[in-house]
């Protein structure tokens, strides 16, 4: 009898209970809310057939919309990369009155309905708005141009850079900088050779997210862009217009293209990150 008992396999117990339940709920959620709609979109896109798809995407109006969206998103991201990094640096490295308020303000673009942001920006940059009244006499037109589109995109996606870089910068041990100082490095060299490499992976995530978000930004942009076909019409808006015209294939093709760009970006960013973090991967 005892030998039988001894031979019985012991099932290791998990210390934390509820794995089956929590994992099941999570996977169902991901399936229903994220994967299924994406799959539907891909299937819809596949129905169209390659020639038709190609025709839709190379139509001048679609190309113009994509070009505008991509260039404006690139401009917004470039701005956010510099300004977001600076903002994170200021919020982490210095103490000043109002720091907590400034820190809280950084979340406003996330919390604010994008339409509200769009309206506010349009009002500011309109010919009789505060900024517009200053800029337009100088011949700088923001509203109804790519500048306005880029500005709206930058506004809504800046927190991605700040909020990804900030915690990493906070955790960065000041000893590395002290060590660099004792070795004779001057401030800019320390930033370039010690601090920036440490925050680079997080920075890349922030920049990629900022770009991806800018590609898809809709609410804030449509108010300031003017939405002139071939000029200031962004890709997501074009998809909506196609949908309103009952051109489901046209809408799906544009949506699918945007989806692919976003996916490629995320994969590329992850690969770059893995490369930047390779020193952590190996070894103990």
């Amino acid at each position: 009898m005892t030998t039988v008992a001894a031979a019985a396999r012991i099932r290791p117990k998990r210390v934390l209970p509820g794995f089956g339940l929590t994992m099941g709920v999570t996977l169902s959620y991901v399936g229903i809310i994220v994967l299924l709609p994406l799959a539907a979109l891909v299937l819809k896109g596949a129905e169209i057939g390659p020639e038709r798809f190609f025709a839709i995407m190379t139509a001048p109006r679609t190309l113009a919309a994509l070009k505008l969206t991509l260039s404006a998103a690139a401009m917004a991201t470039a701005f956010n990369a510099v300004y977001g990094l600076l903002m994170a640096w200021v919020l982490v490295r210095y103490d000043f009155p109002g720091k907590r308020i400034l820190d809280a303000l950084m979340d406003i673009p996330f919390a604010l309905p994008t339409a509200v942001a769009g309206l506010a920006l349009s009002a500011l940059f309109a010919g009789n708005g505060w900024y517009g009244a200053l800029l337009e006499p100088m011949g700088i037109q923001v509203i109804f141009t790519i500048w306005g589109v880029a500005f709206a995109m930058a506004f809504t996606s800046i927190p991605f850079v700040v909020r990804t870089v900030q915690p990493v910068l906070e955790d960065l041990d000041p000893q590395y900088e002290d060590a660099a100082v004792t070795l004779g490095a001057h401030p800019f060299t320390i930033f370039r050779r010690v601090v920036f490499p440490a925050i680079l992976p997080a920075f890349m995530v922030g920049v990629t997210l900022s770009f991806a978000r800018s590609l898809g930004e809709f609410g804030a942009v449509v108010f300031i862009a003017g939405n002139l076909p071939m000029k200031t019409e962004i890709a997501s808006l074009l998809a909506v217009i196609r949908l309103e015209e009952y051109d489901y294939n046209g809408a799906a093709a544009i949506a699918l293209t945007l989806l692919m760009i976003a996916l490629v970006l995320l994969v590329a960013s992850n690969l770059l990150q893995a490369r930047a973090l390779r020193y952590k991967g190996r070894g103990a």
């Binding site: 002290d178 004779g184 490095a185 440490a198």
Partner: peptide
């Protein structure tokens, strides 16, 4: 300045640059 003192400092946790 510390940069110009030319001392060698070994930190308690060594503070080796992790990415180098």
């Amino acid at each position: 300045k510390a940069q110009d003192r030319r001392i060698g400092f070994v930190f308690q946790n060594y503070a080796l640059f992790p990415h180098m």
